[in-house]
Write a protein that binds this DNA or RNA. Sequence first.
DNA 1: GCCAACGTTGGC
DNA 2: GCCAACGTTGGC
Length: 135
Amino acid sequence: MNYWLVKSEPSEYSWEDLLKNGEEIWDGIRNFQARNYLREMKTGDLVLFYHSGKTKEIIGIAEVTEEAFPDQADSEQKGWVSIRIKPKISIKNPLTLEKIKNDGQLSNLLLLKQSRLSVMPVEKPQFDHIVKLTS
DNA sequence: GCCAACGTTGGC
DNA sequence: GCCAACGTTGGC
């Protein structure tokens, strides 16, 4: 199993929206690096859900329920893909970017290195550490 | 509101 | 194919 992190601006689509809808097609990704990661996702993989913008925190854990399929909005069929996720765990104590920065074990998170990437892999030890910090 | 870091576009 | 200009994202 692999672990991931996706970012969303809560005014665009929030964790609460995902909870309300029960599942969501994660589409609209128009970045090659992010797309490649989407293609690697497998059913059952776990996905940290990060709010960018004002709050800047990991607020939930979602699960991949459908592996990469063509993005319906990709009318020119350029190979963009989407996946489907559902909420799994709502985090009671969200992990803020500030805490992530101040935690030595999380210094290698791509989140800190490539601030603009919206889909990225997370190593299992780091994922486990985040789960421990937020539970 | 500003700026850094990228990604994209278009002229050459 | 290079590079300047521009647009976008996201942290501060």
